[in-house]
Design a protein around this nucleic acid. Structure first.
Lengths: 198, 198
DNA sequence: TGATTAATTGAACGTTCATTCAACAATTAT
DNA sequence: ATAATTGTTGAATGAACGTTCAATTAATCA
């Protein structure tokens, strides 16, 4: 028995996410958010509390989507090597299909905010830890299936592959070429996994 | 025949650098710079033009110091393997000796600014390209000395090792452990270089 | 010593920022 | 219809931002 919301929460969250992703947190003003979300100040503040809370909800939304994407790719491939190769390749595509590249919202915000915004920093580190756990989980199976190179183990490989992801995220913002990124991915995959014919 | 400057340009640049490094560009206000540099607004503006120009000079200063440090380490070690191992180890130390870790000014600023500050972005990409060139140059010698693993070459290895540096920079801000960083470094060095006994 | 030059000072400027709120609109329940 | 409830609106708010500038200070030179 009241007036219904005119906006779709997920749609306006995506609009806000695009801006934060492209420009960063501090460089995105409420005026720009108001324009992009097509909402008036009062509506935004009644729906999201304030700019900080809006950011946190955007981060959670991105995080959830990211993890779903990772799980999907890791689960449907027929080997761990192929799974991680596809995951890295999709990131290379993501880092190069737009100019200028937006990079990764999480890594961008980690480097912009982790020292000046404790709450955001905690969200971001939690996400990265969860991603590492997903990697590790997939690599335990890979190890049991004998897919890992001698000297590798799930813990080491998870650190190494997450590091490769970080590299790609930075290279994206550095405007590195697709070729360089592919080289890095190939090297990393080759370092962790046995060749398929083995 | 005029009043001499009261401040040492390098000293106040370092003060400004510390703030930008710790907090980022947007999160560092002129008020904070005024306090840290112990200069009044007019002095800062007459010496550095404005906040943007101050940043660019800080970036150039950091860049110059960074390259000097890289050259030093790469030149004085008795093998390329040891040179890069020491370089990465010093970065691990840099990423973990302070809490919260400041990371790397260049990578921090790249992820905060490259999409919203064209001039800063250009400076940052130029620095990263120069670093890659330094790496490549050292790796050409390593290749000639037969230090590289089969399948490696200076171009590929430079991309890979610069990627490792990016990983460390992000891990620093993610509050990763020294142990994780050491694992990543060991893996990368082992991937690129032959074992010393070979 | 007085003139000249340059550096320093700090109050003040206009702008933009994130945020608030009273008035208004749209829906449901009675 | 009317009351009750909630969402929307947009002008207004105070604070903080980067920046400016007239006045002052400190040095050199004639």
């Amino acid at each position: 028995m009241a007036r219904p919301q005119q906006f779709d929460r997920e749609v306006v969250l995506q609009k806000a996410m695009q801006l934060f992703w492209q420009q960063g947190y501090a460089a995105t003003s409420m005026s720009e958010l108001i324009a992009a979300m097509d909402m008036r100040p009062g509506s935004i503040y009644s729906a999201f509390e304030n700019k900080q809370a809006l950011l946190l909800e955007v981060l959670d939304y991105y995080s959830q989507q990211g993890h779903a994407q990772v799980c999907l790719v890791l689960d449907e491939a027929k080997s761990s090597r192929e799974a991680f190769a596809r995951l890295l390749a999709s990131m290379v595509h993501e880092m190069t299909c737009e100019t200028p590249a937006k990079g990764c919202l999480i890594v961008n915000m980690l480097l912009e905010l982790s020292n000046v915004n404790e709450e955001a920093g905690a969200h971001l580190r939690r996400h990265l830890q969860a991603t590492k756990d997903l990697f590790r989980q997939a690599l335990v199976k890979a190890d049991e299936a004998g897919e890992l190179r001698p000297g590798q183990n799930p813990d080491v490989a998870a650190v190494f592959l997450l590091g490769t992801v970080y590299s790609l995220r930075v290279m994206g913002r550095a405007a590195a070429s697709q070729e360089e990124m592919r080289i890095l991915c190939d090297q990393s995959i080759h370092h962790v996994f046995l060749n398929q014919q083995d």
